[in-house]
Design a protein around this nucleic acid. Sequence first.
DNA 1: GTCTATAGAGGGATAGAC
DNA 2: GTCTATCCCTCTATAGAC
Lengths: 198, 198
Amino acid sequence: MLSDRSARLGEGVGDLSRNVRSRTRREILDAASGLFAVAGFKGTSLQDIAAEVGCSKATLLYHFDGKDAILVEMLAPAVGAFGVLDRQLAGLADDTVQLAAVKGYVDLVLSFRREVTVLHGDIPGLLRHPALADVQGMVDRLLDALASRSPDPSAQVTALMVLGAIPIVCMKPVAMNDDELRDVLVRSAAGALNARGA
Amino acid sequence: MLSDRSARLGEGVGDLSRNVRSRTRREILDAASGLFAVAGFKGTSLQDIAAEVGCSKATLLYHFDGKDAILVEMLAPAVGAFGVLDRQLAGLADDTVQLAAVKGYVDLVLSFRREVTVLHGDIPGLLRHPALADVQGMVDRLLDALASRSPDPSAQVTALMVLGAIPIVCMKPVAMNDDELRDVLVRSAAGALNARGA
DNA sequence: GTCTATAGAGGGATAGAC
DNA sequence: GTCTATCCCTCTATAGAC
């Protein structure tokens, strides 16, 4: 169902008027993600979202099973893509997994900037959420991959640094297009990882 | 008054029984910082803090002018130390400021782990707080220093990465003492910064 | 200085008309 | 499918007894 949903992201011009349901849902998700990104999940009320969309709180709760459901569905495509990366990395050997992890993680973050901003803004609360339980495991495996699956503490610390270094570029605007940005991120992350032994 | 307070941090055995006021205040600050760190500022209620301390909500509000005041006073020593670093870096030349910024920032984060965790856990909400208004400016100047005061976008992105890379080590426990940790952090951060041109 | 009790605001969620 | 009105809860903060 996750892949189902992400597949619908690039939906074309065809059946716009068929079901209004999807359209309103998407407006709600758009408004919510924007507000969550600047004020945090707990810092945003249903009233805030309703005001942004231009509807009532009751309408939000007709389309979603609660505030949490809005968050979960908003993050679903990003979580799905993270899962894909997780499975890709699982199939790689220890000596090739690190660079693939860096590139895959950078791509993931750049593809889901808003979602990453939301997650990054309320780490203590959100990663504890039941619906995001698998994310914690994926983060742990990503860290392991970034450390070339080495048990060396210094490798693990550096992996942690890379994990924290990438998402922060979502917060501040930067005068670069995405291709240049991807390049700088991958190069600098690799530089941090290599500097460990030097 | 900030330096006044930080100076009192290492207070000895002398006048413990003199004013109970300070003792209770510190218990409150301790409990609050621990809870803020794991559940976030908005995710922690006065009731939570009162339960941890073993007193009533009213007692908290007798000692502090409100929930915000607890946060601000809890962060005061860290903010003060950040200000010291800020002024030190201001006096350095462009070609020496980067390494000093890295070392100073790493030391700062390692010295105030809990405070950094609190700030890091609720970035959207907390940096907007009026009492923490100067922090935003200090962060901007630190970023500038980490970029060797270069206007190059790639230097600024890398500085941003370093800014995000250090605090995350506060969140996960790591099998290293602080001296080793400081060394890895500085070395890897320098590696990221140098990799930019390579 | 600490407590109980309570005010007052705002949150999420539901009921029922349209 | 959307609305208004309302319920119930939790939160911050205050009042006043001890």
